[in-house]
């Protein structure tokens, strides 16, 4: 086993270990952080394979984008700090079954693929400009259609985000007006029993 292989196994162990931690962690924020490490590990694997462009995109999209969004949404929940209850046995059982099924499925596919013997030379060498041209190519193996479809999807997601975020302020009412006027706020006067009925004019 040479140094390269050792690095490969180390990275793989890191990815798998953090992935398992991500699904078994009791705290939701920690799960997100373990997921982050797992995704960074995948990027490291790409670097190991010398496909730097994919690695950089992996970091930009997953680490800088997806995980940050996940963390943001965790911030907005109430129970981000508290421990989640342990899942019931039935759920653990079914998830184990699902893992087993997934593992055997992918194992079968991988085992069925005839791998070539590893070579010492770089397997492929793609300049970044070629990737760019392929991405916007309309000819055979051109990716312009999927590229545009994905951007439309992202646009729709952005519009959806804005709509959800806008809902908190109802149309036509400013926040200033929503604030309660003095004399009508939530501090009820506990010290004095209500002896007399006195109408306090609420001018605002």
């Amino acid at each position: 086993m040479d140094a390269s292989a050792i690095i490969f196994y180390l990275i793989s162990a890191f990815i798998l270990g953090t992935a398992i931690l991500a699904v078994t962690s009791q705290k939701i924020f920690r799960s997100a952080i373990w997921l982050l490490f797992s995704l960074v590990g995948v990027a490291a694997l790409y670097f190991w394979m010398q496909v730097e462009f994919v690695a950089a995109v992996q970091i930009i999209v997953y680490v800088g984008g997806v995980v940050v969004l996940i963390i943001f949404s965790i911030f907005l929940t109430h129970y981000s700090g508290s421990e989640m209850p342990k899942p019931p046995l039935k759920r653990i059982l079914f998830s184990l079954l699902a893992v087993l099924f997934g593992f055997s499925f992918s194992y079968r596919i991988i085992a069925g693929y005839g791998f070539n013997a590893a070579t010492t030379t770089k397997p492929f060498n793609v300049p970044v400009s070629a990737i760019g041209e392929q991405m916007l190519d309309t000819k055979k193996y051109g990716f312009v259609l999927p590229f545009e479809v994905v951007s439309m999807l992202l646009l729709a997601a952005m519009v959806g985000c804005i709509v959800i975020a806008m809902r908190s302020v109802p149309k036509g009412t400013s926040v200033q007006k929503q604030a309660a006027p003095i004399g009508a706020n939530d501090g009820t006067n506990k010290l004095i029993p209500e002896t007399k009925d006195l109408v306090i004019e609420d001018k605002s």
């Binding site: 952080i33 982050l36 960074v40 730097e52 462009f53 690695a55 950089a56 995109v57 970091i59 930009i60 680490v63 800088g64 984008g65 995980v67 940050v68 963390i71 300049p127 970044v128």
Partner: peptide
Amino acid sequence: NIGVLYVSAVSSVSVI
């Protein structure tokens, strides 16, 4: 070979 892309990719990690 992807110098500046690498820079902007890794710099997004510090926000985490």
